[in-house]
C-alpha cells in the first residue's frame, strides 16, 4: 500500500499488457492473423502493386496498400478488446480491482499495438529484397514504416472505441470498419476530385481531406516526417482512447 503511485500504475499496465498479449498467443488467432496479413501484403505488393514491373528500388507498392489492408486487419485484431470482457462479465472483475480506467484502456491499446507492430516487423524480407535488388533510399523506407505504424495505431484506437460500445464482436468490427473507411475516403484522391468537380468549395474539401488518414499517410510515404502528420495520428489515437474511456465510465454511472 505504501508503494508510490507511479510504480503501481506501471505494474497494472504491465499486468494487463501481458494478459492481452498472451491471450492472442494462447489461441490460434495470432498465428492466423499474422499469416493472413503477410500473405495479403505479399499479394497486393507483387500482384496488384506490380512490385517488379515498376523497376524501382522502392517499397511504394508495398506501403500504398496498407490503408486498405489495415481496414480489415486492424478491426479484426481490436474487436474483442472490450466486447469480450463485456460478454464474459470480466469487466466487473476488472473494474472492482484497484486499477484506474485509463490504465486498462491504455494497456489494452498498447498490447494490441505491439501485436500489430510484430506483424508489420515480419515484413522485413521486403526490405532485404529491395536492398538486394537495387539501391533504395532506406530513409524513405524507414519513414514508410513509421507511417504504417502510426496508421495502424489510429485504426486500432478507433477499434478499441467501437469495441467498448457493444458486447458483440461482429458489431464492433463493422462499426470500426465503417468509421475507418470514412476516414480513408474523405481524403482519397478519387473522392476529393469528385467533390471539387461537383462544385464544393476548395476550403471545405481541404478541411475534410485534412481529417483523412490518406492525406497524412501519403505525406509520410514520400519520405518526409512532417510533425503535423505525426501529431494528426497521435491526436486520433488520444481522442479515440479518451472516448473509449468515457464510454466505459458512463456505462457504469
Amino acid at each position: 500500500m505504501s508503494q508510490p503511485i507511479s510504480n503501481t500504475s506501471m505494474g497494472n499496465l504491465k499486468a494487463v499488457i501481458k494478459r492481452e498479449l498472451l491471450s492472442y498467443f494462447f489461441s490460434p488467432i495470432a498465428y492466423v492473423f499474422i499469416v493472413i496479413f503477410l500473405l495479403l501484403a505479399g499479394f497486393f505488393t507483387f500482384m496488384i502493386g506490380g512490385f517488379f514491373e515498376r523497376g524501382q528500388a522502392t517499397l511504394e507498392s508495398f506501403f500504398m496498400w496498407h490503408p486498405w489492408l489495415y481496414l480489415f486487419f486492424v478491426p479484426a485484431v481490436g474487436m474483442r478488446l472490450w466486447s469480450e470482457e463485456k460478454r464474459l462479465g470480466t469487466l466487473e472483475l476488472l473494474f472492482t480491482m484497484p486499477v484506474q480506467l485509463w490504465q486498462v484502456a491504455v494497456a489494452k491499446f498498447l498490447a494490441s499495438w505491439i501485436f500489430l507492430i510484430l506483424a508489420l516487423a515480419l515484413t522485413f524480407p521486403y526490405v532485404i529484397t529491395v536492398n538486394w535488388l537495387g539501391d533504395p533510399d532506406n530513409g524513405v523506407i524507414l519513414c514508410g514504416y513509421i507511417g504504417s505504424f502510426l496508421l495502424s495505431g489510429a485504426y486500432l484506437a478507433i477499434s478499441c472505441m467501437t469495441s467498448a460500445l457493444t458486447r458483440s464482436q461482429v458489431i464492433s468490427f463493422i462499426l470500426s470498419v465503417v468509421i475507418c473507411l470514412l476516414l480513408i475516403l474523405c481524403g482519397w484522391m478519387p473522392v476529393t476530385d469528385l467533390l471539387i468537380t461537383s462544385g464544393a468549395p476548395v476550403w471545405l474539401v481541404d478541411l475534410v481531406a485534412g481529417l483523412s488518414f490518406m492525406t497524412h499517410y501519403e505525406g509520410l510515404q514520400r519520405g518526409v516526417v512532417d510533425s503535423r502528420d505525426v501529431i494528426y495520428f497521435l491526436s486520433v489515437i488520444v481522442f479515440a482512447l479518451f472516448t473509449n474511456a468515457i464510454i466505459l465510465r458512463d456505462e457504469r454511472a
Binding site: R19, L22, S23, F26, S27, L88, G89, T90, E92, L93, T96
Partner: peptide, 11 residues
C-alpha cells in the same frame, strides 16, 4: 465474487 463467476476463458 461477482454473480456467475466471470473468468478469462483462455487463461
Amino acid at each position: 465474487l461477482p454473480e456467475n463467476a466471470p473468468l478469462y476463458e483462455d487463461m
